[in-house]
């Protein structure tokens, strides 16, 4: 088995299934140390070095490989990078040397105001230049590659003239970053905006994919129809499992169950992780007998 070898104390193996670490499960995971291949945290929740969260992370880092998933760098914004945020992130990373560090293809701040959301980037040459410039600055400062996650978007901008998969591939080419592929986001976008999920997965640079996210969505009924919302508040849907099985035949990057809202008992989350292990066996590349 090949093991990813970033500068970390605990690496994450190919095909390893992890779960997102969320506060309702902190104490149970710490007490029971369940069989989970790796844990992912939201970086911003662990910035405060004297906090209870950091104390917990100190203890869990001994037992589990870690991935740090950021939601606040606002890489798609025209604002200058928030240096304080970046310093806090670097300090966190330097402390734990996580196996993976990731952010989003999105923006969340403008003119110094933050919006606590992952807002859509128009897929234009200008956005690409802005995003790559900022990502390069971040990677230079952190001294390591960052994975960029494909977003859920609920609208298109007419000015967008680059396919999202091509936009992500170009970011990766220009910045030598990696990709975090969220299969639920691709599915949600395919239903809401009519993109072809299989075409997307065929064209994404699979060699650059270092992590996969699996999550659930919610159906929201509007006056004149229905839309899927990427709530991360329900089990992984059957169509997303199907995408996972198919994509697994080409990509063995570690995968993560993300559950952020209406967080269930840990047992339910772990059952989703077990299912991911079974599903990937069904999607594994055929072994050629020697």
């Amino acid at each position: 088995m090949t093991v990813l070898t970033p500068p970390c104390s605990l690496a994450i193996a190919e095909n390893a299934i992890g779960v997102g670490l969320r506060s309702p499960h902190y104490q149970q995971i710490l007490a029971q140390l369940p069989d989970i291949a790796w844990l992912e945290i939201h970086s911003e929740n662990f910035f405060n070095a004297g906090s209870a969260q950091r104390d917990l992370l100190d203890r869990l880092a001994v037992h589990y490989p870690l991935s740090f998933h950021g939601i606040g760098l606002s890489l798609g914004s025209t604002d200058p990078l928030n240096k304080q945020h970046l310093r806090q992130l670097k300090s966190l990373i330097d402390n734990y040397q996580p196996a993976l560090v990731s952010e989003h293809l999105s923006w969340s701040s403008f003119s110094g105001r933050y919006f606590n959301d992952l807002l859509p980037v128009p897929l234009t040459s200008e956005s690409l230049n802005v995003f790559c410039d900022r990502l390069n600055q971040v990677q230079d400062f952190l001294g390591r590659a960052v994975l960029v996650e494909n977003p859920t978007v609920y609208l298109n901008f007419t000015q967008s003239h680059i396919d999202e998969w091509a936009f992500l591939n170009e970011i990766q080419r220009r910045c030598q970053s990696g990709l975090l592929l969220d299969l639920n986001n691709i599915y949600v976008n395919s239903i809401n905006l009519g993109i072809d999920a299989e075409h997307y997965l065929q064209n994404i640079n699979v060699d650059a994919v270092r992590e996969i996210h699996l999550a659930g969505f919610t159906r929201k009924v509007l006056e004149d129809g229905e839309i899927l919302i990427d709530t991360h508040g329900s089990p992984v849907s059957e169509p997303v499992w199907e995408l996972f099985r198919n994509f697994r035949s080409r990509c063995q990057a570690p995968a993560l169950i993300e559950w952020d809202n209406d967080i269930p008992d840990l047992a339910v989350l772990l059952a989703e992780a077990r299912r991911a292990e079974r599903e990937q066996l069904a999607g594994a590349p055929e072994q050629v007998p020697i």
Binding site: S77, T78, W107, F110, S111, R113, F115, L119, P122, T124, E126, S127, V130, Y154, L155, N156, F157, T158, Q159, N192, L193, L222, D224, G225, I227
Partner: peptide
Amino acid sequence: LAELQSTFSQHLLYQSVDLAELEITGPF
């Protein structure tokens, strides 16, 4: 991009903007 983000942000903050300027398409 800066103009788009400015208009988008103002809308989030309930400031009066002309959404047509964003040239949005989608299911609704």
